[in-house]
Design a protein around this nucleic acid. Structure first.
Length: 678
DNA sequence: GAGCCTCGAGTTCC
DNA sequence: CTCGAGGCTC
């Protein structure tokens, strides 16, 4: 490439990277004392990979990429997306589409008859992929993963002929996002080839595409007929256009395929008409699609609309009705979760639905079984909700006189009484930690990915160690090294796997505070609430002090998102003697990190803003979203805690109160200026 | 008190 | 992904 980096520079840098990455590997794995964050480490690995991609002749024999690729358990390398890869909200009916259009207009403070254009295009059933081009060169291909972190499939996407290695006239940084898929015809042909070769037969084109893209060996991917279709973009060094439609045409001009059926619509009616047209064409399309995607066309409006949680307000996926199938309910089993909840699971005569064979289906709870009038032996109609989780839609044999299914009133695992609390649907085992299933599930939760994330301590190992009496409470995990010799004598545990496991455990002696709190498994405290609690209290000890103090519930309830129910659950947890002992025991083994906020602090972080009177250029929701983007919070009423009041025409009592309290008051124009500066 | 929205908990198949 | 429940707003 014709830029400043010479080959000599690159060779020098690669040498340094190899040594540096090796040093950090050692610090992390052997000495458990990383000097840099995971993100910084990832950046080194990525720089190494990008340099190697540009100077393939300089790849070193001791290259970190070779070692990383060769690591037996690691699979594909992880990459953090520069911009998160979000999903879209789903709709299943014309009403929901109309509501979406109305909601967009409401948010933008436009009248219902206002003119807002949308794009509409088929939603390909493949797997999302992000392609990063820097100065026209393809430097990274990544799968969606969980939206924030995906897998590096650069070497594999380079083998896809739809994807250019280089392009002219593109922005310096361009991340194209789209779907990697396999056409129906190519899928059939591939399966025929696989069959004659005695290889794996794929259930559907989607799985075939996923299996082909996530290969460690790119030569296998190269032999698979993968295709690509762009539907959007991630990071950009400059805007592509002023509208979605033109931006997609621009991407097409870089020789990246874009859907033929991408159109601009001027109303909900036109969107629905296009949906019906695509639905009609569906069977004749060369690839599988599962719906139609709508996006607000004007990009300035997209920006104003922003995001809710994990989906943009400006987009919608209008899904085709789920495929359904009929089968027989052979049995109902009861599973016991970590909270003691008894969940009935239906065992089915295996049946194909939407390209996979379904044999199990969750029945949720006692009420659901009653609502459907389910009995063992019934014929049922099932579907895969959102094309993923199977569910029973209908019972086809309601009239036969067989005895109804009786939901157990005792825990099938420990025999304790199982009851539903007043006003609750769920039936729970009252055995607590007496119940082996609950003990097991709580340990599983403690080490799970969202909590401590101890790799290699899976379901099977936990069960094995519990059986041996080595593992009863979370603290015991950190004492497993005392059983090292005995473990080495057991089947399936060789030196290497034992060291990997004990190493993974040792690496979590200083766990992230919120993950640790989440891992304790307190009712109603998930990862978000755990983070909010520690943001307020800093350390677990402080939280415990608050929960045990006089009027603790009130102090806890002051935390955002914590009300009486969550506060009571916390107070109960810390009052229960067994929990206190288990926590002290655990804290003697590990030191959770105090909370550090990852959000950058700004002038408005944590401030409270009240909007009053009418707003003319935006809706209240938009104003609220703007406040949140600044790191502030929009509240409904003025109090001593209010930091700013934005008053429009017609403001009354709130404005008066703000003036009495001496709170800063601005008008809408001044607010817009604050937002622009932030 | 109703009607959002967010969060927690449970789950399937590959 | 879905469901119910909890919290917050109007």
């Amino acid at each position: 490439m014709a830029d400043a980096v010479t080959e000599a520079d690159a060779a020098e840098r690669l040498k340094w990277l190899a040594a540096e990455i090796a040093r950090h590997d050692k610090l992390y794995h052997d000495q458990d004392a990383p000097e840099i964050t995971d993100a910084e480490y990832d950046a080194l690995v990525r720089e190494n990979r990008e340099l190697e991609a540009r100077f393939p002749e300089l790849v070193r024999t001791d290259s970190p990429s070779k070692r990383l690729g060769a690591a037996p358990t690691s699979g594909l390398a992880k990459v953090r997306h520069a911009r998160p890869m979000l999903s879209l909200e789903n709709a299943f009916s014309a009403e929901e589409v109309e509501e979406f259009v109305a909601r967009v207009k409401r948010f933008l403070a436009l009248p219902p008859d206002a003119f807002v254009a949308f794009t509409a295009e088929p939603k390909i059933d493949g797997l999302s992929c992000s392609l990063r081009y820097e100065r026209g060169q393809l430097v990274l291909g990544a799968t969606r993963g969980d939206g924030a972190v995906g897998e590096d499939v650069t070497a594999n996407v380079r083998t896809i002929s739809d994807i250019p290695q280089r392009m002219d006239g593109a922005p310096d940084v361009l991340e194209v996002r789209g779907e990697v898929y396999m056409s129906k015809a190519d899928f059939e042909a591939l399966n025929e080839r696989q069959e004659t070769a005695g290889g794996k037969i794929f259930a559907n084109p989607r799985n075939a595409a996923a299996g082909s893209l996530r290969q460690k060996d790119p030569t296998i991917t190269a032999a698979r007929p993968l295709r690509f279709l762009a539907h959007g973009w991630g990071e950009l060094s400059e805007p592509l256009a002023e509208t979605q439609y033109e931006a997609m045409k621009r991407i097409e001009s870089f020789r990246i395929p874009v859907a033929d059926l991408l159109v601009r619509c001027n109303s909900a009616e036109e969107m629905l008409a296009h949906y019906r047209a695509i639905e009609k064409a569906r069977a004749d399309l060369p690839f599988d699609i599962d719906g139609v995607v709508y996006k607000v066309d004007r990009l300035d409006l997209q920006e104003r609309l922003g995001f809710v949680a994990r989906a943009p307000r400006w987009g919608l996926a209008h899904k085709f009705p789920a495929e359904k199938a009929e089968t027989t309910l052979e049995a109902i089993d009861i599973q016991v979760g970590r909270t003691g909840k008894l969940t009935p699971v239906g065992r089915l005569t295996p049946v194909g639905v939407g390209g996979v064979i379904v044999a199990n289906v969750t029945l949720h709870n006692r009420d659901e079984i009653e609502r459907l009038g389910l009995r063992i032996g019934d014929r049922v109609r099932i579907q895969r909700a959102g094309d993923v989780i199977p569910q029973v839609v209908e019972n086809l044999t309601r009239d036969e006189p067989r005895p109804p299914y009786v939901f157990p009133d005792h825990c099938p695992e420990c025999g304790s009484e199982a009851v539903a609390e007043e006003g609750e649907v769920d039936v729970r085992c009252t055995g607590g930690l007496i119940c082996p299933a609950q003990r097991f599930e709580r340990l599983r939760h403690f080490v799970s990915r969202g909590a401590l994330d101890i790799e290699g301590l899976g379901e099977k190992s936990i069960a094995e160690f519990m059986e041996l009496g080595w593992l009863n409470s979370p603290a015991d995990i950190f004492r497993l090294h005392n059983h090292r010799e005995e473990l080495l004598g057991r089947e399936g545990w060789k030196e290497k796997s034992v060291d990997n496991l004990l190493g993974a455990i040792e690496a979590k002696r200083q766990p992230d505070g919120p993950r640790f709190l989440f891992g304790l498994g307190i009712r109603h405290v998930g990862i978000v609430t755990a983070r909010d609690l520690l943001k307020c209290f800093g350390a677990i000890e402080e939280l415990r002090r608050a929960a045990l103090s006089e009027g603790g519930e009130a102090e806890l309830s002051s935390v955002q998102g914590v009300g009486p129910v969550v506060a009571e659950a916390l107070v109960d947890f810390f009052h229960e003697p067994h929990n206190r002992e288990a926590l002290d025991d655990l804290l003697s083994e590990v030191s959770p990190q105090p909370f550090v906020s990852d959000a950058k602090q700004t002038e408005w972080s944590g401030k409270t803003i009240v909007f009053t009177g009418s707003l003319e250029t935006m809706s209240r929701d938009e104003a609220k979203a703007q406040a949140e983007r600044l790191g502030a919070r929009a509240a409904g009423s003025v109090s001593g805690k209010t930091d700013l009041v934005v008053a429009g025409p017609g403001a009354g009592s709130k404005l008066k109160k703000a003036e009495e309290l001496g709170i800063r008051v601005v008008n809408e124009a001044e607010w817009a200026k604050i937002v622009a500066e932030g």
